[in-house]
Amino acid sequence: MARAIRMDKKDNVATVLMDVEPGDEVDIEGAGGSLRIEAAETVPFGHKIALALIPSSKNILKYGETIGIATRTIKAGTHVHVHNLKSSRR
């Protein structure tokens, strides 16, 4: 079973603790209780997976804080990184 960790209960992403492949069931641990989601695509170790649908231009939250803005609609179970997240400081 793949695992991921959510740092704050407000977070809409979690960090995967091992390489995740499409179709893998991912157990989300950490803040906000446990949750299980299905990976929609490959997410490498240490990268982020969306926990729910994040509409375009909405905040992406980790540590309970904004780490960037969604540049397109991000579906639950997909990889969240520089291709669909942009820094709000730029």
Partner: peptide
């Protein structure tokens, strides 16, 4: 803001300066 996170930070999964700094201040 464009050069930090660095290329190896990005390869490791960090997507923005906010994400790096929020982790650093912990």
């Amino acid at each position: 803001i464009g050069s930090n996170p660095t290329a190896d930070n990005i390869a490791g999964g960090l997507s923005s300066i906010e994400e790096k700094s929020l982790g650093a201040i912990k």
